[in-house]
């Protein structure tokens, strides 16, 4: 599995959880990708930052609450989590509202980072 060059993968998450299946699908692909020892970055921008909101309680909507799984990413050696600063502000949230440690970045910085990637996957 470690044969070949390590590529830089970026997962761009832009959708709120539960309203659509994108967030959960992305998370599952990320977990699978972790098995291949690649350089993985996760970006949360726009409504995607809601995926990391603390205190999700999904009993009422009878959906699986997959937010605790973001806390498992560290154990999968996925440690590069980036959050769009402007998206936090526009939603009245701060870093303290998020359930994992992240690096908050401006859109401009995220754009630069995106440019450096070999593969960008969009959700």
């Amino acid at each position: 599995m470690s044969e070949g060059a390590i590529k830089k993968f970026m997962f761009v998450n832009r959708k709120a959880p539960y309203g659509t299946i994108y967030a959960l699908e992305s998370l599952e692909v990320v977990l699978i990708t972790a098995a291949f020892d690649q350089d993985v970055s996760l970006v949360f921008m726009d409504d995607g930052i809601f995926q990391l909101k603390k205190g999700q309680q999904t009993k009422g909507i009878e959906n699986k609450n997959f937010s605790p799984t973001y806390r498992a990413l560290d154990g999968y050696d996925i440690e590069k989590l980036y959050v769009e600063a402007e998206a936090l502000t526009a939603r009245g949230l701060t870093e303290d509202d998020l359930l994992v440690d992240v690096t908050v970045m401006s859109r401009a910085e995220l754009g630069k980072l995106m440019d450096e990637m070999d593969v960008v996957l969009s959700f």
Binding site: P17, Y18, Q56, T58, K59, G60
Partner: peptide, 8 residues
């Protein structure tokens, strides 16, 4: 309310 709670 259930949708608000689901989203924290």
């Amino acid at each position: 309310a259930p949708d608000l709670e689901a989203r924290g």
